[in-house]
Nucleic acid binder design. Structure first.
Lengths: 259, 259
DNA sequence: TAGCAATGTCCATTATAGTGGACATTATGT
DNA sequence: ACATAATGTCCACTATAATGGACATTGCTA
């Protein structure tokens, strides 16, 4: 069971970045190795290499390490080129303003729903959310779209069992999740209520390429109580934003995004 | 000469990220391999792995790849934790406002001077500069501090010969560069004129830990003509900012930056 | 249509890097 | 003071991943 599988250096390096990212704070190399269940010698070697390239940085006086300046630069470069983000931001802002609710742009990263951009609504919100936050796919409205067309085998492999649970209680089954996904695709939008939080609901709509590939998903988050009265309005608003973003994207594609 | 040195996967992966970063645009995998002088098969394998982890993303319909969403998230996490940046930004802003000149916060990344944050001055500037921009160390005022205490052997290895040249003409020798560096350390600040651009000058001052390690360098960039009349004033302003940033940093250290 | 270059996939070989474990050093607590 | 844990370094071994090259596919142009 504890068969010490030998992983590639790149894999280990990514695990290091992910581990630091998930902990959200500088860690001692030893602690890091323990947290990822990797050999200490390996992690020491790799951190040394990564620090040499400024992908990791030393923090504080001691031996704590964390995500480095190079990653900051990569992130900036991403923003400059990932036109979808820059182009969608003002539209998301407008969504939040028109609806008064929190609007988000989400993406599928490592089989988690991941907030890339968020605009706060009028509502004084107890439930916080920031770019970079990640949630289990089965508990989110956006997740319904990310698993579209993915076979069950893959889903079982990639989405961990605990992602169907909240506070130790199962919220949904894979079968229900898939059924939800099919329904969402048919009607073009997805609604979820009380999954990730008993008092929260969400409506989501995908942004796709012409080929049909899903790029991201936009959506609202709001108190469950508001759902019945506003679902239609939210869907209408999202549809407008969806059209606007996709039009902007394809006109950008026309002009050929660089050689 | 063309001895095909076998590199580690991690090393190759970093080369891929750097290559994309430097080109600043999505590239076809083949083109990428050619640009970095690496075996095509290797680059195909690695890009596949990196795309699977969202560290690279497909761009456009075709096979072009570029820095991915995951890097964006890492970058955000870096900003959240790298208190130096958040803490220095308002101070840099103030510097630019008080002096009327462009103020920058720079760091040493891969032996290049790299702009992490910049505040524009009053001056309508022809010479642009953005966070993420990188310059050869020998041509920058900040570079004087980054090579402090580094032995000549290392410098020869890490700083490529062309970094001493501008438009094919040598601007400075390693010996002069080192002499500059020693002088800068003695007087606590560094002045450079007409190196990276015939009509530009810069004044810089380091931000160090209590241990003396250089974290970053702050500085002004302005027309060479202004140097004589304003050097003293700039140094004075920088000294104030330096003290302020370092005080904020050490008080932060006191309260222990997380376990 | 054929010809040629660019792009993407696959596989056997072997240099090398990930691993485990021993050792050295530094903190921490009693 | 001692004991114990935590942290960092070093090294021999071998599983494995980087490599070169062959092959398949697509796009372009003549």
């Amino acid at each position: 069971m504890v068969k010490s599988s030998r992983e590639s250096g790149l894999e280990r390096a990514i695990q290091i970045l992910d581990c630091l990212y998930e902990h959200g704070r500088p860690m001692v190399v030893n602690e890091l190795a323990a947290a990822m269940g990797a050999p200490r010698s390996t992690v020491y070697e790799l951190t040394k290499a990564l620090i040499g390239r400024s992908i990791l940085d030393h923090y504080g006086d001691g031996g704590r390490v964390y995500l480095g300046r190079k990653l900051f630069l990569y992130g900036q470069a991403f923003q400059d080129e990932y036109s979808l983000l820059g182009l969608a931001e003002p539209i998301i802002d407008l969504l939040a303003k028109e609806s008064g609710e929190r609007a988000e742009l989400c993406s599928n990263v490592d089989w988690k729903q991941c907030v890339l951009y968020m605009a706060e609504g009028q509502r004084p919100f107890e439930y916080k959310s920031y770019p970079g936050d990640r949630y289990p796919l089965p508990l989110t409205a956006t997740g319904r779209f990310f698993i579209a067309g993915v076979d069950e085998e893959t889903l079982r492999q990639r989405i961990p069992e605990e992602d169907y649970y909240l506070n130790g209680r199962r919220r949904i089954t894979l079968e229900q999740f898939q059924a939800d996904s099919r329904k969402a695709q048919e009607q073009g939008y997805s609604v979820v209520s009380g999954l990730v939080d008993p008092y929260l609901a969400a409506v989501a709509m995908p942004i796709t390429e012409r080929s049909g590939t899903i790029l991201t998903v936009i959506g609202f988050t709001f108190p469950s109580g508001e759902l019945a009265a506003n679902e239609e309005r939210f869907v209408h608003l999202l549809r407008g934003a969806q059209a606007e973003i996709q039009a902007a994207l394809s006109s950008l594609d026309q002009r050929g995004g660089a050689k």
